[in-house]
């Protein structure tokens, strides 16, 4: 049974190489997380408080939408859930294998073909060659890319890359799927397919976390929504109420 429990999770991101003038400039910024200026003892490294005291719990079948300004902490939260950023404080418990789909083209090589990249991307995600080989046919079918799969992927559009990454990432029935804004690159027919696949996935004890700016995508996919603002969860609850809050306070 998969779940995610976040208890007062905070993350301070040190910004290395930020000059003094840049620092004072940042302080008056409207968007972005809360900025913290390190004291002299901290070697004058600028720190952005990217996430502040996040507490929430997701259980099987939960589909969480994250919405908020640019720099509100949506992608950072996804990276924390993916395990690539370790929280500075608080506790985070995740059960279930996590499959992140956070940036297009990561784990792929533009000069190799779509088929080659199914293998490369799968290996990056921690699958074995055998697992990937057994599902290559199915993955290829899902992408509907046909002969394009034999071309180098540097010729692909963002939407085509999304089809490829999504097909590989969801081919193993992940228990927790994390999707960042890249989802916007897909076309209408992809959304229908993706939604269908995620619904089957979610029936098997899965959790989805989706960051987006699209209210319609959130209402379509998510039963819970977190409205993020300056690294904090301004609102967390059922999607309908969250969207109402978002429209009233953030937009």
């Amino acid at each position: 049974m998969s779940y995610i429990t976040a208890d007062n999770v905070s993350l301070d991101l040190p910004i290395i190489g930020a000059a003094r003038s840049f620092r004072s400039h940042l302080l008056v910024n409207k968007v972005g997380g809360l900025l913290r200026v390190g004291s002299k003892a901290e070697n004058e490294i600028v720190k952005v408080q990217a996430l502040k005291d996040l507490t929430f719990r997701l259980e099987r079948g939960d589909r969480l939408g994250l919405i908020g300004h640019n720099g509100a902490g949506k992608s950072t939260l996804l990276r924390v859930l993916a395990g690539t950023y370790r929280p500075t404080s608080g506790s985070l418990k995740i059960k279930g294998n996590v499959m992140p789909l956070l940036s297009l083209g990561s784990g792929m090589d533009g000069d190799f073909t779509g088929y080659d990249n199914i293998m490369l991307y799968g290996l990056y995600l921690g699958l074995s060659r055998q697992q990937i080989a057994a599902r290559t046919r199915e993955i290829a079918d899902f992408t509907e890319l046909g002969d394009f799969l034999s071309l180098p992927i540097r010729t692909y559009s963002a939407g085509m890359l999304l089809r490829l990454s999504f097909a590989v990432a969801t081919s193993m029935d992940p228990e927790i799927l994390l999707v960042d804004e890249i989802f916007g690159a897909g076309d209408a027919s992809f959304y229908v397919k993706a939604k269908h696949r995620m619904e089957t996935m979610l029936e098997k004890s899965s959790i989805l976390v989706l960051a987006t700016h699209s209210v319609s995508l959130i209402t379509d996919y998510c039963n819970k929504t977190g409205v993020m603002q300056k690294g904090q969860m301004a609102f967390f609850g059922p999607t309908a109420e969250a969207i109402e809050y978002y429209k009233k306070h953030i937009l």
């Binding site: 993916a82 950023y85 940036s103 990561s106 990056y124 995600l125």
Partner: peptide
């Protein structure tokens, strides 16, 4: 860098 920030590797 981007890969290490977004993939569980």
């Amino acid at each position: 860098g981007e890969t290490l920030k977004t993939m569980p590797l």
